[in-house]
Design a protein around this nucleic acid. Structure first.
Lengths: 294, 294
DNA sequence: TAAACATGATGCCCTCCCGGTATTACTTGA
DNA sequence: TCAAGTAATACCGGGAGGGCATCATGTTTA
């Protein structure tokens, strides 16, 4: 294999068509340059320069090899720049998971903020439920998630992005929609209820059970995604407790009603990431977003 | 600048994720390989491998640099192959000039023969009159010409490709077209004649003057290209002596008549090339076409 | 026509880089 | 606490590559 020095030497001679001047340009003397070219020609296996004691010119093979040599040198000088950019987090990939509901509230502004901070980082977005995001963060398939508690704070750092209220989704034609006051638990005692899955959507399940007086015999469906719940409400299968951001899902035939409850904005959305994640783009982003650890 | 050895070393370690095994694969021992990687990281200016005493893994920058390193190695191993192919004449460029008339006879078969011999050589064709071809061959802008004598045999080698008769082009409606015998000089004594330029088309001019009894007072036009002559005949401006291959030009309203003359096929077409041309594709082509010098 | 000049190649020397061997430092698991 | 595994470091010797001096050869000039 030839060396980069030989390539630089060859390029210089090919451009100057004169060993002496080329050597001068390379800050060396002519004899070792001659030997470099000889060695290069030997390893390449073809004459690259046609030279007698008076004149130097490129052979056909030399012209083609000059192209390749220039390409090689360009690639070789770019490669470290790219590597350094990626190491510093200014360039690279960031894989972000998000839940369908959060996509309609925080995702847009967050992405704008991110591309202002690290404009050359490619963002891969994946819609995933909280459990899948946690899984992705653990296996390293994801750099950051937009998810809801609970998660293992030993493994993950997080930052509270957003806090919102719970509202009641009812079919638009439902009598409750005309009520001029906040909904009480009492109002729902005979209403068919579309409820969160206690396993797949444990966060919402726990929240609803804690804050509202649920009659479990009224539950007609158990689902894991907010979007599904609202669709079922639109289909008049019942009423459902959903986070306020669900109002932005844009599904017709559904009204969202305020709930009278102890806590004003009990629903939390966090940015979470693996504590020992190494992706420099993530590290830089966290630093510049000033997401203090924990 | 890093070296190709460092790149090969890095690629091996990145693939094995183990210095010992990588060193084994490279037929060397582990310590110098460790130093290679350290040196590479130093010149690149970024950590490429995240390693403790137990585990080795690629950093984000390392993954990107691995791509570049592979690209570099691939390019570096292809470059000599290309150069050798070009030096041997199996690949490259061949610039061939041809006259309009020859394009309709010999060019097609010749190109087929060429692409059978050197299929990977790119052929650039240029339609040029003999004089321009000679010029192109001298300046090196052309590798081979398809032209007619005379040319300087000190400078050019040549090979007779083709020999053909002269015919008389007359308008299809002309009385001579109905004659059932070869045309004699006597038949043309009162015919307006479209004649070759004695400077621009000296070959044909000399030939016609030598073989036929021209009355110069009959000459109504002096032109340099066969195509132009036939077009003028079609426009009934006169009759003209043209090589037999002009019958293939496909211009309507022209009849081509046999000439009674001393020589059967006096018109020659040669392949000519610069004696000291260096284009390997040309050298190989001449060798394989068995165009003996001279 | 001969001498001076220009230019690439070669011979020789010396330094520095790179690889090998031996060893160390550190982590992990029993 | 010890043994095993693995990357890093210390030290040494050989070879590659650069510099200086010179040669070989072709061109220009007096």
């Amino acid at each position: 294999m030839f060396t980069f020095d030989q390539l630089t030497g060859f390029i210089a001679v090919a451009e100057e068509l004169h060993f002496g001047r080329a050597a001068e340009r390379l800050n060396m003397t002519q004899p070792p340059l001659s030997r470099q070219i000889q060695k290069l020609e030997k390893t390449v296996g073809a004459e690259l320069l046609d030279r007698d004691n008076r004149r130097v010119e490129l052979t056909a093979a030399g012209r083609a090899f000059l192209d390749e040599a220039r390409r090689l040198m360009a690639l070789a000088s770019r490669a470290p720049v790219t590597a350094r950019r990626i190491a510093s987090g200014r360039q690279g990939h960031l894989r972000i998971g998000f839940t369908a509901a959060s996509g309609f509230s925080i995702l847009g502004p967050l992405l704008e903020e991110i591309s202002a901070i690290v404009p050359d980082v490619d963002i891969d977005l994946q819609e995933l439920v909280t459990g899948e995001q946690i899984q992705g963060l653990l296996t390293g398939e994801l750099d950051m998630g937009l998810a809801r508690p609970p998660f293992d704070t030993e493994v993950f750092d997080s930052h509270l992005l957003y806090r919102e209220s719970m509202v009641l989704a009812v079919p638009a034609s439902h009598p409750l929609a005309d009520l001029k006051r906040d909904i009480q638990s009492e109002d729902l005692k005979d209403e068919p209820l579309i409820m969160h899955s206690p396993t797949q959507a444990r966060y919402f399940y726990d929240l609803v059970v804690r804050l509202h007086d649920i009659r479990h015999e009224n539950v007609v469906h158990t689902v894991s995604q907010i979007l599904t719940m609202v669709s079922l409400v639109a289909a008049k299968r019942g009423v459902a407790f959903v986070p306020h951001s669900a109002t932005a899902l844009g599904i017709r035939g559904v009204s969202f009603l305020r709930l009278a409850s102890g806590e004003e904005e009990p629903v939390e959305l966090h940015a979470i990431w693996n504590r020992d994640a190494k992706n420099p783009a993530l590290v830089r982003l966290l630093r510049d977003l000033e997401f203090a650890a924990g």
